[in-house]
Simulated scan of single mutants.
Amino acid sequence: MTEQAVRSAVIHTPFIELDKLLKRENLAATGGEAGLLIAAGLVRVNGEIERRKRRKLYPGDRVATGEKRLEVVTVLQE
């Protein structure tokens, strides 16, 4: 099995909460589904199972669920 490419998830704020990121990036259909995925231990942040749905993610954090991979990146605004 080959590892899927890591996709960038761009944020324009200092951080984003895990459940909101999953919903925004279409890894979950709803916020409720995102919460269920997290509670079931199906989401990893930086390689560790994460069960806090409101976990703050910062640029450089990596999120994985199933075969989907994201890396949080930021765009500096001037």
Rank of each mutant, 00 (worst) to 15 (best):
P59S: 09
A34D: 04
G47P: 04
G60Q: 10
R55S: 04
K23P: 02
A40W: 04
R55I: 00
N46A: 14
G47S: 14
L27Y: 12
L18C: 05
G31T: 02
R24M: 12
G35F: 04
T65A: 14
L22C: 05
R51T: 14
L42P: 00
L57Q: 00
E33Y: 03
G47H: 14
V63L: 07
P59D: 07
R44A: 13
E17I: 04
E67I: 08
K20Y: 12
E33R: 05
V43G: 00
G66M: 09
K56R: 12
K53I: 05
L22I: 07
R51Y: 07
L57W: 00
R24A: 14
E67R: 10
I49N: 14
V43S: 02
N26P: 02
L42C: 08
R24N: 11
I49H: 15
A40I: 08
V45W: 05
E33G: 04
A29N: 11
I49Q: 15
A34I: 03
L57M: 07
K20G: 11
L18G: 01
D61V: 00
G41T: 13
E67V: 07
A28Y: 02
V45C: 12
R44V: 03
I49A: 15
L21P: 00
L36P: 00
P59Y: 06
L21S: 03
E25D: 11
L42A: 11
K20N: 13
E50V: 09
G35Q: 11
L27W: 12
E17C: 08
R24S: 12
D19Q: 10
K23G: 09
A39H: 07
E17G: 08
E33V: 09
T65V: 14
G35T: 05
P59V: 04
N26T: 10
R54N: 09
N26R: 15
L37E: 03
G31Q: 05
A28E: 04
K53W: 06
R54V: 06
L36T: 01
A34C: 06
R62W: 03
V63Y: 02
P59F: 05
K56E: 06
V43E: 01
L37G: 01
G35A: 10
G31I: 01
V43K: 00
A64Q: 15
G41Y: 12
A40K: 13
G41C: 14
T30R: 09
E50K: 08
R52H: 12
D19M: 09
A29T: 11
L18R: 01
D61G: 00
L27Q: 05
G32P: 04
L21F: 07
A64C: 13
E17K: 11
G41P: 06
E48M: 15
R44K: 15
L27V: 05
G41N: 13
A64E: 15
A28R: 01
R52E: 08
A28H: 02
A40V: 11
A28F: 05
G66L: 10
G32M: 07
K56I: 04
V45H: 05
V43P: 00
V45F: 08
R52I: 08
R24Q: 12
L22N: 01
T30Y: 03
K20I: 10
L27D: 03
T30P: 05
L27E: 04
L42Y: 06
G47T: 13
G60E: 09
R55A: 08
G66I: 09
D61W: 01
L57R: 00
K23C: 12
